[in-house]
Design a protein around this nucleic acid. Structure first.
Length: 601
DNA sequence: TCTATATCACCC
DNA sequence: AAACGGGTGATATAGA
């Protein structure tokens, strides 16, 4: 019994579309082929009406490669999204995740992987460039695009035929998320367009001023470029012996700078400058004409099934200060809602470790762990035992990444034997978790694959990092939960702007944002319960109403610095200096922390 | 002048 | 042998 048998109609669908960075897609043409009857539709954009030219109801299946693109075109045309989506890209990723895929994950790569006839890659590139160029198109160009679109559909049918036997019902769940991804990409993240444009215009000036203020006369920077040669000369002049890498090059990482700044105070400003400059990256953020940050979420891109949007184009990619550009439009609000201790909760639920479950449900797993280990009394609080809690927190987080005693010792500034003691305490406190974790690694190694509750699979080879295997159940099931929450929320009509690994950014009317947050949290809770066999993960929310901007605590100082330098060069048009959010950050952000049973850890 | 590589920084 | 999971991407320098 094939997955396809339950559908009356199966439509293989491909759009060509035009979508400059930050813009919503603009469909150019559509080709669709019904698998069993051979019925075929090929339409240029002016022939596309207000509904799909084929059935997209519950008895039909829409098949595409990278279906978020097709779904984006549905949205652009005002069409209701199809009830059932099968995305052969998602299936191909799942089928080959962890394996060597010689020709990439595109449609051509998938065809090549299975030894199916492949169209000319040169032609594909030419046609893609034609779509990127945008209209108007001559009659010949239209014919070429439609032909190309049709050839992709033929290729898709070959691929479906090859992959059909391996398809499982769960494929529809993955396809369902591609619809949600399209909706989120469609909404995008609201930006302060004016601040954004001023930043882009004043970019080089900001860098110049920073360099000038701190280290202009030291000969370490040539223009805006750090010169190792210049730095070496400066070190010689200051009579400083600097650590070197095995390669002989100067060690220029921040840890080394930190170490050296402690011994030589004159190094500190240079470290600050390097840190600041390293965070000054934003030119690539793709912002649409509607002042919204919009980019491909790249669903299923990572081995754990996470989204992997481009760091440079996505508002949540670069340094956290960039998030200050996120600002709800008039009368609107946004909320950043993240799961509390998501990976710890997943580990607790899936392993069934009773102590871990209690620790999660206590609201402060780290302190609870310290108490379990006998390092803190039962009545200890976050305030009364901060140092102890920090150590046990580092241990919990470290074990989630399979950190060894040496790294933990280094990170926490403790001895290796102390680190060993902490790691042993974790094993002793959560024995069932460790048995479960060991079993997962054994299973993966013996079976050559490891999978999530809903079937996302990573294939395991001789070179697979065992720490990666140990981390997989937490990270990959976390991704599963996130995808499901995105489905629930978007299907409920919540305006989800973006997923951020363990969080959702949502938007709504300022007057109703509390309701929106509660509804979203309900979706997130339900998604976690669905994946974790009834175990609910709680979430915390941070709400920002217009005219305030989103601000991550970690980014405040940098935001303030950047805005100061920007104002010095290019005062804003109204002459009043940068609005409050740039001036006095501590008071400028309206944050309403929605109370969660878990509180903040 | 362009590309490849090593190193580093950032995100969750 | 390395010793922190999953990623993207910028930068500086060396080499073609």
């Amino acid at each position: 019994m094939s997955l396809l048998d339950q559908f009356r109609e199966i439509w293989l669908v491909d759009f060509e579309f035009h979508a400059p960075p930050g813009h919503r897609p603009e469909p150019l043409c559509l080709v669709a082929l019904e698998l069993r009857t051979g019925r075929r539709v090929a339409l240029w954009r002016d022939q596309l009406g207000d509904r799909p030219p084929f059935d997209t109801g519950p008895d039909s299946l829409i098949v595409a490669y990278y279906a978020s693109a097709e779904c984006g075109c549905f949205l652009a045309l005002g069409w209701e999204l199809p009830a059932n989506v099968l995305d052969l890209y998602a299936e191909f990723r799942c089928e080959t995740c962890g394996r060597y895929v010689p020709s990439g994950n595109g449609l051509l790569g998938a065809l090549a992987y299975y030894g199916l006839p492949v169209m000319d890659a040169v032609e594909k590139t030419a046609m893609r460039d034609l779509a990127i160029r945008g209209g108007p198109y001559s009659a010949e160009e239209r014919t070429a695009l439609l032909d190309y679109c049709a050839s992709d559909v033929r290729a898709l049918s070959l691929l479906l035929d090859r992959m059909e036997a391996g398809l499982h019902r769960r494929a529809l769940l993955r396809g369902r998320y591609m619809k949600a991804a399209a909706v989120m990409e469609w909404h995008g993240i609201p930006f302060d367009g004016d601040a954004w444009r001023r930043l882009v215009a004043g970019w080089d000036g900001i860098k110049d001023r920073l360099i000038q203020e701190i280290g202009g006369s030291l000969g370490i920077y040539r223009g805006r470029t750090f010169s190792q040669e210049g730095f070496a000369r400066w070190l010689a002049k200051e009579d400083i012996t600097w650590p070197r890498l095995d390669s002989g090059a100067l060690a220029l990482d921040d840890d080394t700078f930190k170490l050296m700044a402690a011994a030589y105070p004159q190094v500190a400003p240079i470290r600050e400058l390097r840190t600041a400059l390293s965070q000054l990256r934003l030119q690539e953020l793709s912002v649409g004409p509607d002042d919204r940050n919009r980019t491909l979420l790249s669903a299923y891109r990572s081995r754990t099934g996470r989204n992997q949007p481009s760091n440079s184009r996505f508002a949540f990619g670069p340094g956290t200060w960039i998030r200050g550009l996120i600002r709800p439009p008039p009368d609107r609000a946004v909320a950043y809602i993240d799961w509390a201790q998501q990976e710890f909760g997943i580990a607790a639920a899936l392993s069934g470790d009773p102590a871990m479950i209690r620790a999660y449900q206590s609201g402060d797993p780290y302190l609870e762990f310290a108490k379990l280990a006998g390092a803190a009394p039962p009545d200890a609080t976050k305030a009364s035992h901060k140092a102890i809690r920090d150590q046990y927190k580092a241990t919990v987080l470290g074990t989630q990444y399979c950190m060894g005693p040496f790294t933990l010792a280094e990170r926490s500034a403790i001895s290796v034997s102390e680190a060993n003691r902490l790691l042993a305490a974790h094993r002793r406190s959560f024995p069932r978790f460790w048995r479960w974790s060991d079993a997962a690694v054994d299973y993966a190694t013996l079976n050559g694959r490891i999978h999530t509750v809903f079937g996302w699979t990573q294939h395991v080879g001789p070179f697979t990092n065992p720490r990666s295997l140990r981390n997989f159940p937490m990270q990959a099931n976390g991704a599963e939960i996130l995808r499901l929450a995105c489905c629930y929320a978007t299907e409920a009509g919540i305006q989800v702007c973006a997923p951020v690994h363990d969080a959702l950014l949502v938007e709504g009317p300022a007057g109703q944002i509390g309701e929106v947050v509660r509804a979203t949290q309900a979706c997130m809770r339900r998604a976690s319960a669905d994946v974790l066999g009834g175990f609910e993960l709680e979430s915390d929310a941070k709400i920002v109403c217009h005219p305030d901007r989103y601000m991550d605590d970690r980014g405040r100082a940098m935001w303030t610095t950047v805005m100061r330098l920007l104002d010095a060069d290019t005062p804003p048009a109204d002459g009043r200096g940068t609005p409050p959010a740039g001036g006095s950050p501590a008071q400028s952000i309206k944050e309403i922390d929605v109370v969660s049973p878990l509180g903040a850890c």
